[in-house]
Amino acid sequence: MNGHDLVSVWTTIIVVAVIVAAGRWVFLILPREWRPRGLLEQALSHAPLAALAALVAPQVLAPLLDPAPGAALGGFADPRVLAAIAAIAAVHWRRSVFAGVVAGVAVYLLLAGFG
């Protein structure tokens, strides 16, 4: 990693830290009358899920989208895909993010990490 990369990594970290903190402060600082209401509030409430789903889907489905030559079941049998399915199933079965992380990580390590 060269010097320029190093600087930009730190810049990125600091900028991300500021965005995260500022987001939490917005309506603790701004006048209360400015709080979002009605349609805007409703739209904002759906944004995080949409953003997170849009972000992880290509990473999770990468083995299906660009299957390696000769991959089993067109890439479906990839540890990444199966671990994500396990995580989602566990979250819905146990109603807990914790269970999802544990199940996903366990399946992934079993199939990919040290297999």
Binding site: P48, L49, L52, A53, L55, V56, Q59, V60, R80, A83, A84, A87, I88, A90, V91, H92, S96, V97, G100, V101, G104, V105, Y108, A112, G113, F114
Partner: peptide
């Protein structure tokens, strides 16, 4: 090189699933 960076993605997957 065991692809452990993917563990982070799995954590985000779990969090996303909980929002559905």
């Amino acid at each position: 090189g065991a692809g452990l960076g993917y563990l982070g993605t799995l954590a985000v997957v779990a969090m996303t699933a909980a929002l559905v």
